[in-house]
Each structure stands twice: as structure tokens, then as C-alpha cells.
Design a protein around this nucleic acid. Sequence first.
DNA 1: CGGGATCCCCCGAGATACTG
DNA 2: CAGTATCTCGGGGGATCCCG
Lengths: 217, 217
Amino acid sequence: MRPYGQFCGLARAAEILGQRWALLVLRDLLVGPRRYSDLAAGLPGIPSNVLAARLKELEQDGLVAREARSGADRSVVYLPTRRAEALVPVLDALGRWGAADMRVPREGEVVTEAALVSSLRSAIQRDARRLRPRSTYQVTIADLTIHVAIDGDDVRVAPGPHPDPDLVIATGPGLRDLLAGAVGPEQAIAEGIVELSGDQTAFGDFVATFHVPYAST
Amino acid sequence: MRPYGQFCGLARAAEILGQRWALLVLRDLLVGPRRYSDLAAGLPGIPSNVLAARLKELEQDGLVAREARSGADRSVVYLPTRRAEALVPVLDALGRWGAADMRVPREGEVVTEAALVSSLRSAIQRDARRLRPRSTYQVTIADLTIHVAIDGDDVRVAPGPHPDPDLVIATGPGLRDLLAGAVGPEQAIAEGIVELSGDQTAFGDFVATFHVPYAST
DNA sequence: CGGGATCCCCCGAGATACTG
DNA sequence: CAGTATCTCGGGGGATCCCG
């Protein structure tokens, strides 16, 4: 990591986070602890040596901790430190900014589990008017499944299915338009952007809970 | 700019802002319009070809606009677009995060005008209790001079001297401790971290207006 | 003199293979 | 499973040159 030679917080941040793949490694770790091979699988295209180098650097910079699990499963697990967790609101803001002119996947772009979870997390509107105080959702895109559990102001987004979702939503990249409000809930249903099963009256609540606008101009 | 191949706002942001020097070029432009040579001078160590390449890419990405000034001074000026301005709160947060474990300059690190202005801007506490509703300050570090004008909740930080400052503050990298609250106003005076001239009673107001904490642990 | 373009060198990323 | 080893290649670092 070549230094910028400036006594400046932004320059220091850029030295760490400007490294190739660094932001995405952190994004994945901030969704939950990951093993080396989890990370490799969740970051299609990352060269193995680059992943190893990033993890080593991020550990040295105090953002990532290695935990060697003992016992039957003696794999190595990487987890974010408190310093990395302090980045969550920053990465959320960065992600929303980047999403502002992201409407349709480019050729060959994929959606990963961490991308989906962190996108929805960054989109949470805690003050949204809700139809119901508690609700649970399961969202599927291609072969990915995540879930959302809302309890009052507490909104949780996490990987994997939900044991007992009120509503199951199957969708695709068109979800982006829905989050931006460019497509309303009824229109999304009508146009087949989403397929619902379960308590369909909860869908409005789901849509109101998340928002990531498009760039104004 | 090699794509990450993920349909994800953070990945899109990383493709643009993860480029070497990109964040610092934007930081400088967000302080004010700059000519090519202004940028080169404000970013010590940036290779000329890299600056040219970044500007071209940032223009293509819709973050930077070129404006060819006509008339006597027919220089080219670069300015941030609205899309770049939407980054201001994000870069502020990033800079504060980076500053959280930045206490002392590393060997050879310098302070630039844009670094100083944007650091102070990101540190503004709009809800700070003030001794006086209006006040103006001039801050000098080495050969750099910037100024601050406070009018109620309106706090402005800009390059250059102020025509009629209430208080002139000469300081150095020790300003970092002051912003973090690790050193109080009186202590800063006593230890020679700052040298004041003018209305010294305004110094407490100045200190209360800006805050960038150190990392907790 | 401002605003770049060009050249060469080298590091770090990409790709792939291989090992404890 | 968790990396290291090796090779290639594009882009950055540094200096110099060029053009209006």
C-alpha cells in the first residue's frame, strides 16, 4: 500500500480502502464471519493471491481478525473488528451513492449474497410508516435467498431463508427499480418484476421499508 | 477501470473511487474549481499522466466537468458536477473514519490546503453551543492559510486568509489533538500547540465548533 | 507558462498451478 | 481447506518532452 504522503483522514482511508477488492472483502465480512473459501466464493473473479494479500493487510491495519477455530472444524475464520464495524454507515452511504446511477446489470454482472444483504441493509428506512409492527420476509434472486425480520423500528437483514416468513418474494434485478420507487408495488406485481407467495398485503410494508433513490438528473 | 462484475452499489462506487488518487482529486475539486496545475501542485507526488487519466475518467463518469475559460486567461478549469457534490457527506464520513486513528504525521507527510479545508468542513458541529453567534477565524499551518466564518448555524470553511478575522490561529499538526478533544483549549495555549492573536476569548468557540474523535480503542 | 503527452521501469493485479 | 508459487501484463511512478 503506497502512502499518499498527506496528513489527511481521507488520504489515510484511501490508502486502506482504495486497494483493489478491499471494499468488497469488508462488505462480505460485515455481513458475517467468513472463511477464506467463503470469501473466494462470494467474490467471483478475485485472484487467490490478492485475497490472501488483502486479508493480511486488513489484519495489519486492524480491520480484520483471524480466528483459528479449534475442535472438529479447524478452519480459519475472518471477522471484522470494531474499527471495521465503524465503517458500516460509511460503506452504506458509499453503496447508496454508487447505486444512484445503477439501474440495470451490465453485461456479465452478478448479484451475490453479501451484495444483496448489504444493499437492503443500507436501504432501511427506520421511520417508514408500517402497516404492521412485526413482519418477516424471504427474498430470492436467482439461487440466492435472504430474509428480513421487522419488529417495530428494528429491521434485520440476514443471509439465508427464514423459518416462517409472512411473505416470500421472488424477484430479480428489477428489484432495483422497486427500491428506487421508479416502480410501485402494484406495478411490480402487474409487470411480473416480483412473484409473491404468502401474505401479499405485507408487500406494501416491505417496499416502504427500503429506499435507494436514483440520481436526480 | 476494471469492473468487479457485481450488480452492487458499493462495487460500482469502488470502480470509480478506488482508482489511485481519485478520492484526493475529488477532495481538492470539492474545495473549489481547480486548474490542472493547481491540482498537480495540491497533490504532491501525483504523476502527470495519472492526473490526466483520472480527470478524463472522472469526466466520463460524470463527476468532473471541464470548462475552457475564454478571454485573456484561457486556461482550463475543472469543477465537480452535482453527482460529485452528492459525495460530500460520504467523503466527510470517510475522512473522519480515516482520521480516527491518525494522530501524528508519518515521516514525510505534509498538510495541503484542500486537506485542511475539507478536514475542518467534515468536523463541523452545527449544534455546538457558541459563545457568540458570529465570528471569523483565520487558521495558519506552515505556509497554508484558510479561514472560517460562523454565522449562527452557518459555518463556512474556505481557503485563503480572511479580510478581518476576530481571531488568528497559528498552529501545526497538533491541531489534530485539539479536534479530537484530547487536548483542551487552555492546554493547547499553555503547551504552545496554538498561538493566538486577536480576540482570544473566541478560541473556545472555535474549538467547540469542530470535532473529530479518535478511535475508541 | 499552462496543459498536457510520451517514455521507461517496475510493482501489483490477474490467472493458474501447486502444496501443507 | 487455506493458502503459496510463478508467470504475465496493465497501470502507476518518475522524468522528460512537446504544443499552443
